[in-house]
Design a binder for these strands. Structure first.
Length: 389
DNA sequence: TCTGGGGTCCTAGGACCC
DNA sequence: TCTGGGGTCCTAGGACCC
């Protein structure tokens, strides 16, 4: 029998702020933006703030109306990542088979750890206790025979809870759940459920695989079929490598000026490029994203090249061409984004294609710029372009 | 109350080749 | 001549998650 724990920190960012600032404890804390910050949304709301109806992704302006007396913070990702490492280190004490899903959650395969920690339930309680004692944070846990149901269970136990699904009970557990609890079926799929008169997991359970596929599409249909049966859909089973890297910026006010737009595009390109440079990956696909202020509509386009992009200038030239292909001049730009896709490990690329020695040289140069930048952040070598603004 | 940023995967259609 | 089918790669957009 396999056992998995899904461990999920409660209101992670807000809880860290409350840990670091005792005066915030017991009060509504909203991380994401200060009152008056334009175009900001809530990243995390403490449980005290949730009582006012505040939740993630809500505009700060709306949160402020619901809870004018709240403690509003922009947040400090560096601190949150640091705390995340502490928590993950505690998790690692309980299982060598740790799969981190994001900054605040992970699966632990605890199959066969009984001799060390006792039965799964005992381990789960020890884990929660250890996390609290060593980091001051509470964690919710789900315990089940597969990852999918363990993940749903942890969500049911929030905050600071433990939800156990006994082996053999997975299907019954799912059947008792409202459709809204199905992980992987968001707003649009919930609408589809309603349109088809589906009100419960039991309703979904009655449909055949074929019908589910015809109603929801091949992949989602098959996923739902397994999900309502409490079977671990493959979603979390495969170890996944990085496939893309991107950066985007929403501007305080829409951009109209072409020079300003291009300067921003260059700055975003630099960010993505140097982030990629710190990895083992190369990319041959470049993409841009534009969101217009007038109607919040979003467009993008991309292009795949034969060879990987080797330099920042190369990336920027590609991005600029894509941008001008897509952009209708005169429209105000709310958001600009740039991405690199089709990421492949350098070693794989080297084997497949004639190695481009000139490209390699440029890559080294870019890398040394990166190193100088990180050693002397204040005297960073910056492009004239960026200095002009 | 106007709606972040970083990702993943899926779909449908087109290009191209055999 | 007016027409098949499979495979692969690519693109735009969408849904979803944290």
């Amino acid at each position: 029998m396999s056992y998995f724990v899904h461990a999920d920190l409660d209101a992670f960012y807000a809880s860290i702020e409350q840990f670091d600032h005792p005066e915030y404890r017991g009060k509504p804390v909203i991380v994401g933006g200060l009152p008056g910050d334009r175009r900001s949304v809530v990243s995390t709301a403490s449980y005290e703030a949730r009582k006012f109806g505040i939740h993630s992704a809500m505009p700060i302006a709306k949160a402020l109306k619901l809870c004018p007396g709240g403690i509003y913070l922009r947040g400090n990702m560096k601190r949150y990542r640091e705390k995340s490492s502490e928590v993950m280190a505690v998790f690692a004490d309980f299982s060598p088979d740790l799969q981190q899903l994001s900054v605040d959650e992970a699966f632990l395969d605890i199959t066969g750890t009984e001799k060390l920690f006792g039965p799964p339930e005992v381990l789960a309680r020890k884990l929660k206790k250890a996390v609290f004692e060593k980091t001051g944070l509470t964690v919710s846990a789900g315990l089940a025979s597969n990852k999918y149901t363990a993940k749903i269970a942890s969500g049911m136990s929030k905050p600071d809870g433990l939800c156990i699904i006994a082996p053999g009970e997975e299907e019954r557990f799912m059947l008792d759940l409202p459709l809204s609890k199905i992980w992987g079926a968001g707003g649009k799929t919930q609408e589809l459920f309603a349109r088809h008169g589906l009100k419960s997991c039991a309703d979904l359970h009655r449909l055949t695989l074929e019908i589910l596929r015809s109603l929801f599409g091949k992949a989602l249909g098959a996923f739902l079929y397994r999900a309502v049966r409490g079977q671990g859909a493959e979603t979390f089973e495969t170890e996944r490598r990085t496939r893309s890297m991107s950066a985007e910026r929403t501007f305080l006010y829409d951009l109209y000026d072409e020079f300003e737009i291009e300067t921003q595009l260059f700055s975003i390109a630099s960010e993505v490029f140097f982030r990629l440079l710190q990895t083992e990956y190369l990319s041959r696909t470049v993409s841009i994203k534009i969101r217009y202020g007038e109607d919040f509509s979003t467009e993008g386009c991309r292009e795949t090249f034969k060879n990987p992009v080797n330099t920042l200038n190369e990336l920027y030239d590609h991005l600029l061409a894509l941008f001008h292909k897509k952009y209708s001049a005169g429209r105000g730009i709310r958001l600009l984004g740039a991405g690199m896709g089709n990421l492949e490990p350098r070693s794989a690329v080297r084997q497949k294609e004639l190695f481009n020695a000139a490209g390699e040289k440029e890559r080294k140069l870019e890398k040394s710029i990166l190193e100088i930048n990180s050693k002397f952040p204040r005297a960073a070598l910056k492009r004239g372009r960026l200095l002009e603004t």
